[in-house]
Computed example of a mutant assay.
Amino acid sequence: MTMCWAFLLVEALLLVEINVGLLKKKKSKVDKDYDELEVISIRTMAEETLGEWGGSLATVTYVFLGYTSMIVYCSKSGEILHRLTDIPESISGIFFTFLFTILISLGGTRTTDQVNQWLTVSMIGLLIAIEIVAVHFGGWSGFEGGGGGDWGKVPATLPVLIFTLVYHDLAPVLCAYLEGDLKRIRASIFLGSLVPLLALLIWEAIALGLPNQENQVSDPVELLLSVRWDGVPFMVEAFSLLAVGTSLIGTLLSFSEFFKEQLNKMPIDSPSTQLLLVEEESYTFNYYMNKWWHKNKGSITATAMVVAPSLFVSTTIPDSFSAATDIAGGYCMTMLYGVLPPAMAWATINKKKKKKRGEKLVSISRTKPVIVCMGLIACGIVVQQIIQDFSFLHYP
């Protein structure tokens, strides 16, 4: 798990260095103040460094990843809320997703960031409480006997590990939010990635020990949910819901920003619409509504493009969670955040258009051995996943 975290950390650092470089290049060309964040998406990064084919590959992969991730979160949130409230999964998933849709489309990035911080703190507090309870039930005893473990089962867990630890979809938003300050971005990436890593390591330790205490229950989550004290199952469900919610915020925010960037390149505002706003300066209700829609329609349209198809698939296909997780983690994330960053960094080195301007920070994106190593590892993961999927076809 720590090796997977280290691999993804280096990939994230490559990604932010390329993004910040393009941000600085864009700001040097355009001297203009914006009310909203100017986010450079993964598609634009690939197109600027690899050309049109890179932009097309990144677009297809990113869109597929965004929708599969959203399907996972919509489906899982409905399942958790159904256990808590007995409301049907489809209705629960729609309600949960719409709450965050309203937050992001109307609240904006900064408000969403504040809400996400509170949710993250609450999630960490619940995790600590759950771990204390689990330790009380003997959750650390799994290490007493030692033992090697079955390393042959590790490849099958890679899609889930990658899906759990990936945060790279937020990198473009983070770079814009911190205004290209590479030191702060690197610190945020490193410290932020430690939170899910530590949570997974502690939970893994508990999961290895709990089944030894109750032979009749092999799933540690089921064991905690079966505890007679009503507070424990509620804490587990609440923690799961917060984990899904914080993940959904990151994906929905970055995915909607991706579509917003594409919409901004299209001439959406017609002359008749702009003329209507000028003519209706009598400050009527209709004027305020038109002005509000004129300001927020890009964000609302982009968010709707993300949410509507995801909810449709998650509510119509019952078993979409597992399939979407394997596809997103095994292929889309590995391709987008594993293969593409080294390729973009390599292309940036070969162009050699930028000169050092007194920057003393060490640039990972200019270290060829690291780039080659990251690219080979990412390609190896994709090939391994393909072989594994084909092996399942031969053994039904």
Results as ranks from 00 to 15, higher is better:
residue 98 F to L: 15
residue 72 V to Y: 01
residue 107 G to C: 04
residue 94 I to Q: 03
residue 77 S to E: 10
residue 106 L to F: 14
residue 117 Q to K: 14
residue 75 S to T: 05
residue 76 K to R: 08
residue 100 F to N: 05
residue 90 S to Q: 13
residue 80 I to L: 08
residue 116 N to D: 11
residue 90 S to P: 07
residue 77 S to F: 05
residue 85 T to V: 13
residue 104 I to N: 03
residue 107 G to Y: 01
residue 97 T to W: 13
residue 85 T to W: 09
residue 73 Y to F: 15
residue 111 T to V: 13
residue 88 P to L: 08
residue 91 I to V: 15
residue 101 T to G: 15
residue 86 D to T: 13
residue 82 H to P: 00
residue 93 G to W: 02
residue 95 F to N: 04
residue 87 I to E: 05
residue 96 F to C: 14
residue 79 E to W: 00
residue 104 I to P: 02
residue 113 D to W: 12
residue 100 F to Y: 14
residue 89 E to S: 11
residue 72 V to S: 06
residue 84 L to A: 14
residue 110 R to E: 04
residue 104 I to W: 01
residue 113 D to P: 00
residue 110 R to Q: 06
residue 94 I to C: 08
residue 80 I to E: 01
residue 73 Y to K: 06
residue 90 S to L: 05
residue 84 L to M: 15
residue 117 Q to D: 00
residue 100 F to S: 06
residue 81 L to K: 03
residue 82 H to K: 12
residue 95 F to H: 04
residue 86 D to C: 10
residue 114 Q to K: 13
residue 87 I to A: 10
residue 91 I to T: 15
residue 97 T to G: 13
residue 107 G to L: 03
residue 74 C to R: 02
residue 97 T to M: 15
residue 97 T to N: 14
residue 88 P to K: 09
residue 87 I to L: 12
residue 100 F to D: 04
residue 85 T to M: 08
residue 81 L to F: 08
residue 80 I to Y: 01
residue 101 T to C: 15
residue 72 V to K: 01
residue 114 Q to I: 12
residue 87 I to C: 07
residue 117 Q to T: 00
residue 88 P to W: 07
residue 105 S to G: 04
residue 82 H to A: 10
residue 75 S to C: 07
residue 103 L to T: 10
residue 83 R to C: 04
residue 89 E to P: 00
residue 76 K to A: 12
residue 113 D to L: 05
residue 105 S to C: 08
residue 92 S to I: 09
residue 103 L to G: 05
residue 117 Q to M: 13
residue 88 P to M: 07
residue 72 V to N: 02
residue 84 L to R: 06
residue 80 I to V: 13
residue 95 F to C: 09
residue 93 G to Q: 01
residue 106 L to R: 08
residue 83 R to A: 11
residue 117 Q to R: 13
residue 99 L to A: 15
residue 73 Y to I: 05
residue 113 D to Q: 08
residue 76 K to P: 00
residue 75 S to F: 02
residue 111 T to A: 12
residue 83 R to E: 12
residue 112 T to H: 01
residue 91 I to G: 07
residue 116 N to F: 10
residue 90 S to D: 12
residue 74 C to T: 09
residue 98 F to H: 13
residue 95 F to Q: 03
residue 87 I to P: 03
residue 76 K to T: 11
residue 86 D to N: 14
residue 94 I to F: 11
residue 115 V to P: 02
residue 78 G to L: 03
residue 95 F to T: 08
residue 89 E to V: 10
residue 98 F to S: 13
residue 99 L to Y: 11
residue 79 E to T: 08
residue 95 F to V: 13
residue 101 T to S: 14
residue 113 D to E: 07
residue 75 S to N: 09
residue 82 H to T: 14
residue 112 T to E: 00
residue 101 T to R: 04
residue 103 L to R: 09
residue 87 I to G: 04
residue 103 L to F: 09
residue 83 R to W: 00
residue 89 E to W: 05
residue 87 I to W: 09
residue 91 I to K: 11
residue 80 I to K: 01
residue 100 F to M: 14
residue 87 I to M: 12
residue 94 I to T: 11
residue 78 G to C: 06
residue 116 N to Q: 14
residue 95 F to E: 02
residue 90 S to R: 11
residue 83 R to S: 12
residue 115 V to H: 04
residue 84 L to I: 12
residue 74 C to K: 02
residue 94 I to W: 06
residue 114 Q to S: 07
residue 114 Q to D: 00
residue 115 V to K: 04
residue 89 E to D: 06
residue 113 D to N: 06
residue 115 V to M: 11
residue 72 V to R: 00
residue 92 S to L: 07
residue 89 E to I: 09
residue 104 I to F: 01
residue 93 G to E: 02
residue 98 F to E: 12
